[in-house]
């Protein structure tokens, strides 16, 4: 027994130095790199890592406005009561469902409309500069102003959206007072806002595809759709994957637009997870509960990212 295992151990021993030695060697070799990284590491530690663990800790306490800085009360660990409360609240599942719907609608529209526009722009050379500028505009305006502007456009009486609808013979819609239409309205605004980012990313991807691949495919007999499916999509995958992951995370966590246009109303009809958390934290001052909610959101997104990246890795990669 020992005869058979020894050669293997003897073989491995000289190659693998003790971890401490390897660590010291590694540090010596890369000292300058670490020194240069230090400021960034510090900033990240202060603004990301510390708050992350702080929130995680907070999630298991009953911290709220009354006990956080109070002389006679202190926050207590409450054995996951926050989580129990969240998961037993039917409202949570409604909001989760709406958040998923909101994310899917937005990301699908961002990607498909962004891709459509990118393909148009990539083709037509003459108007490209003009259109590019016009289409990037939503991106260049501060979101607060965008939200203000759209809130006025959706005004039932004076908003241009209704004026346009009426001018083509459609009835006026009470955009911001009907929960369904309010949800439609915030979706429209967020789609409008998100298209330029996807368009720019996809346009960049499209421009890196050599026209020869399309020509080869044409000679091979590919129709326009087959070229899109078999050439464009695989070539765009390396840019689409991170763009979709980022877009999903941003949209899932997008507080600004909904908060600025509807504050989650009317009647919680446009509430998504982050607006709900925001309300719990800054309107109801339930810090522990909000932290637990945030942890849940974080875990949902983490699972999504892991699955998505795994699913799109491998087959069809282009370098």
């Amino acid at each position: 027994m020992s005869v058979t295992t020894q050669p293997a151990a003897a073989c491995a021993a000289p190659r693998k130095k003790p971890a401490s030695v390897r660590f010291r060697e590694h540090m010596r070799r890369n000292r300058l790199a670490y020194i240069l990284l230090l400021p960034a590491i510090l900033v990240i530690a202060i603004v990301v890592i510390y708050p992350f663990f702080y929130a995680f800790n907070l999630a298991f306490t009953n911290t709220n406005m009354y006990n956080i800085n109070s002389p006679d009360k202190t926050p207590q660990y409450n054995a996951g009561a926050n989580f129990t409360e969240i998961f037993s609240d039917p409202q949570f599942y409604v909001i989760l469902g709406r958040t998923v719907l909101w994310t899917v609608i937005n990301v699908v529209c961002h990607v498909s409309l962004g891709m459509g526009l990118a393909i148009l722009l990539n083709r037509n050379l003459k108007i490209r500069a003009l259109y590019r500028t016009l289409l990037v505009l939503p991106w260049a305006i501060p979101q607060v102003i965008v939200a203000m502007m759209w809130r006025n456009e959706f005004n039932t009486q004076y908003g241009s959206v209704n004026l346009i609808l009426q001018s083509i013979g459609l009835p006026a819609v009470s955009w911001l007072t009907n929960p369904f239409w309010a949800f439609v309205a915030v979706c429209i605004v967020n789609i409008w806002l998100g298209i330029p980012f996807m368009m720019i990313i996809i346009l960049g991807g499209l421009q890196s595809i050599s026209p020869e691949y399309y020509e080869a495919a044409q000679l091979d007999g590919a129709t326009a759709w087959q070229q899109f499916r078999r050439i464009t999509i695989p070539f765009l995958k390396p840019v689409l994957t991170p763009a979709i992951v980022l877009g999903t995370v941003w949209t899932f966590n997008n507080l600004n637009i909904i908060y600025l246009i509807t504050q989650g109303g009317p009647n919680n009809g446009t509430q998504i997870l982050v607006t709900y958390v925001y309300r719990a934290a800054f309107d109801y001052y339930r810090y522990g509960y909000s932290a637990a909610f945030s942890v849940i959101i974080f875990l949902i997104l983490l699972v999504f990212c892991l699955f998505y990246i795994r699913a799109t890795r491998g087959a069809g990669e282009v370098t």
Binding site: E212, E215, A216, Q218, L219, F235, E317, V318
Partner: peptide, 19 residues
């Protein structure tokens, strides 16, 4: 269109589909 001409072309850069 190219696909109805029944020809095949070898490109200078080959244009092999990398994926």
């Amino acid at each position: 269109p190219p696909k109805q001409r029944d020809i095949a072309m070898v490109f200078q850069s080959y244009a092999l589909y990398p994926h």
